[in-house]
């Protein structure tokens, strides 16, 4: 097979190469696939945080001391950065969720799904540009 290609290639001075990635699918390797992957990853991460967050909030029923000591962990530099990751995950999941709704219910949503993905990324960057400096200020310069 390759020798045939090489021979015909010698005749026309071009070589025929196989596609680098599987071709012929709508989603594979493009914005549609990556938005789907990111939606799943962020969704699972947010779900596990939610389990922890309901448990730590339930400590208010135990005692003010118990709640405050656990919630103080959220104020450390490490988890302060973790909250940036959390807001980033929630922001992406929320904005892409709205994109999914537009694709499902808006008559021309499917046609513009790729543009909508980049609008999601743009709004997500704006959201983080608003939150991240504020959070860094709170965590590293906010006193006790």
């Amino acid at each position: 097979m390759s020798s045939q290609v090489a021979r015909s290639g010698a005749a026309t001075s071009t070589k025929i190469r196989g596609p680098k990635r599987p071709a012929g699918t709508l989603y594979r390797g493009r914005e549609g696939m990556w938005s789907w992957v990111l939606h799943r990853i962020t969704g699972v991460a947010i779900f596990f945080f939610l389990l922890v967050h309901v448990l730590d909030t339930a400590l208010v029923r135990l005692s003010p001391e118990a709640y405050n000591s656990v919630i103080n962990a959220y104020k450390t530099p490490l988890l302060g950065l973790g909250e940036i990751a959390l807001v980033a995950a929630i922001g992406l999941h929320a904005l892409n969720g709205l994109r999914i709704i537009l694709i499902d219910f808006w008559s021309v949503g499917t046609r513009h799904q790729r543009l909508l993905f980049w609008i999601v990324i743009g709004l997500w960057i704006v959201l983080l540009a608003g939150f991240v400096p504020r959070q860094i200020m709170h965590i590293f310069f906010g006193g006790a």
Partner: peptide, 10 residues
Amino acid sequence: GTGVKQVDFA
């Protein structure tokens, strides 16, 4: 406010 640092029982 003071962000996450304001969060406590009160």
